[in-house]
Design a protein around this nucleic acid. Structure first.
Lengths: 238, 238
DNA sequence: AAGTGAAACTTGTATATACAAGTTATTAAT
DNA sequence: ATTAATAACTTGTATATACAAGTTTCACTT
């Protein structure tokens, strides 16, 4: 077992500032502490602080204005993060529930996996789990997820229940989504899916296959989605 | 008239390297000159060179690998460009056809337009047209498009037949897609759509509503899509 | 009271340097 | 010839500093 190496200072700064913005300590439109103030707080120098702030700009957390400061921006949803929404106003977090059907487990890749895999991915194997998402206790989205099992110690013991896959990857493993692709079909629900999503067999559902690439080489996230869009819809940004 | 101020050195570096990559002088998978070599070429130091390279990473031109170098990346497809694909190998351009059903025409916005519009957009009005796309003479995708009528002189006379909306906007109007969002449903084809897509009424089809933002303020592209995914599927990158 | 200007902030650009850590090529030992 | 150690590269992180340029504040002048 390896002792966990300390996070570089600028990454600690990124984490801290993201957390403070996410928590609402620094609100949209407000100014962050100036670069020199952050230097003093962290006992470092401007290039290091600026390295962190540049990252926050690129992830949409802040904008910088010369002479003024770093302004907290509209909280941008993560690249490729899919959400389920509806027209009914007020779908708060309380009405969302995520159930783990099959807990994260190590698994080898299928021989005829839909996407092409690199040798490193094949060697590393995958972590597989399935989830079912509810809105107002209505099952809406069934999701199968495969994650390349690279640099993810103890991942199978993590709790992924409330929409926290991307948060977990970011917080504990410094994994960030960089880009992705998706393929989309409309299909009629088969017996298994229709039962799970509480639909009549043959009802139109959205099926997606997605590949999300991360900042870690060969660490990709694959997911197959099946979504009931009678009451709600799938939504994403790019 | 103001004399143009000299470009900062790191921006000149960005421009130069982008040009060399676009021109193919540095090809995909190849290494750029090392940071120290660039320092010598430009008579500067590593922090400045790294500032430029970091920007190239964020725009997808390169990836950096510690100990190895800066690797020219896959030329990234345009943001938000949707394509229709199939498993059948060899869907060449020859098998693709786009038919303009309703030619581009100026039009005021609907009172209850699906997306919220700015005052400037409302004032400018829209350009509206519909297209039907075929693969191997099979109608696959029906698309309604609304573009904010800002800085688009003579647009209604342009030919948009072969997948060239984004090319036209880029080439003649310097309009580039910056980001976007989409909402996705699976629905049963109604009478009109089923007829157009040569389907049985009620067959599952993909319906999407998309908003694409551009580098021009208030110039957005909205489109409603209806896609037959029995033989092919929708594909996009982000 | 209104306007001017300087001071004191802010971020933007840049130099110079140092050591850590990962990769590749070379050299030396077996 | 193969292997192992080493040297020579590469990028990653960090310090310390300087001046340019944009914004805000406030005291001073009118």
């Amino acid at each position: 077992m390896r002792t966990s190496q300390p996070l570089p200072l600028y990454k600690k700064l990124i984490d801290d500032l993201k957390t403070l913005i996410d928590q609402g300590t620094y609100k949209k439109g407000e100014l962050l502490p100036s670069e020199n103030e952050l230097c003093k707080s962290y006992g470092t120098t401007r290039p290091t602080v600026r390295q962190a702030l540049t990252e926050l700009i690129n992830t949409g957390y802040i904008v910088r204005q010369q002479g003024k400061g770093s302004i907290v921006a509209e909280p941008k949803k993560g690249l490729g993060i899919l959400s389920v929404s509806g027209f009914t106003a007020g779908i708060g977090d309380k009405n969302l529930k995520t159930e783990i059907l099959e807990k994260p487990q190590k698994r080898t890749w299928d021989n005829n996996f839909f996407y092409e895999l690199t040798d490193e991915e094949l060697k590393a194997g995958s972590i597989y789990f399935t989830r079912l998402r509810y809105i107002n206790n209505l099952p809406v989205l069934f999701e199968e997820t495969f994650i390349t099992n690279i640099q993810l110690p103890r991942f199978t013991t993590r709790n992924l229940e409330d929409n926290s896959l991307f948060n977990t990857l970011s917080k504990y493993y410094q994994v960030e989504i960089k880009e992705g692709e998706q393929k989309i079909w409309a299909i009629g629900a088969d017996k298994k899916i229709s039962k799970m999503l509480n639909l009549k067999q043959g009802s139109p559902i959205v099926h997606m296959k997605r590949k999300l690439k991360t900042n870690i080489r060969n660490l990709n996230i694959y997911s197959w989605l099946y979504c009931n869009t009678e009451e709600y819809y799938l939504h994403d940004n790019f």
